[in-house]
Design a protein around this nucleic acid. Sequence first.
DNA 1: AAGAAGATTCCG
DNA 2: GGAATCTTCTTT
Length: 216
Amino acid sequence: MAGEFSLKSNSELSFYGNKKILPRSFYRRDTVTVARELLGHYLVHQSPDGLTAGRIVETEAYLQGDPACHASRGMTPRNRVMFGPQGYAYVYFIYGMYYCFNVVTRDEGVGEAVLIRALEPAAGIALMKSRRRREKINELCSGPARLVQAMGITREHNGADLTREPLFICHGGTMPAGIVTTTRIGIRAGSELPLRFYLRESAFVSKKEHKSHGKK
DNA sequence: AAGAAGATTCCG
DNA sequence: GGAATCTTCTTT
């Protein structure tokens, strides 16, 4: 079990209360379960510039053997973190200008991860606006590359331990209801698979209009 | 050595 | 609808 993390200021105290960092065992389970259960928890980053945090409202699962998964064709220098132990960050560069942030799941040797696609901004909103150069709240973290920018996540965080400061995920307090399942966004192969999950009531999902899959 | 594609975002 | 922009991996 991970312990309680330290509190560095009154403003952090007012946000955190006594929330707990998710333990490494949370991430060891099957990747679809982790993708669904990450919804409602908080991604937190204590950077030198200040604290930012957001409630996770949209995720996608990437599985070994799934052609859309970076690990589907074996380990390369880029994706090696996916094959490592669970509970670490996999950050990759895409389209010549953006980064995406994933959480590595399952045991060492299995290349699977959960892409975090959207957050509801919860703390450090002024800093998020500054990093994003956008004022609208729903343009800060609604999209995988947007939230990376708003949270101050960089390529240096590839391989970072998410059960410790300064970048971690902590318990959201309540179990959210109303998870919508759809196909994933922006991929070719594997586009039929129902591996995207988001909170139905959230106004901070990147795209609501997408092929819904079965259960609502 | 060269080429194509990419888990996106923003602007026109 | 299309450009921006460059790393990574695959193919010659």
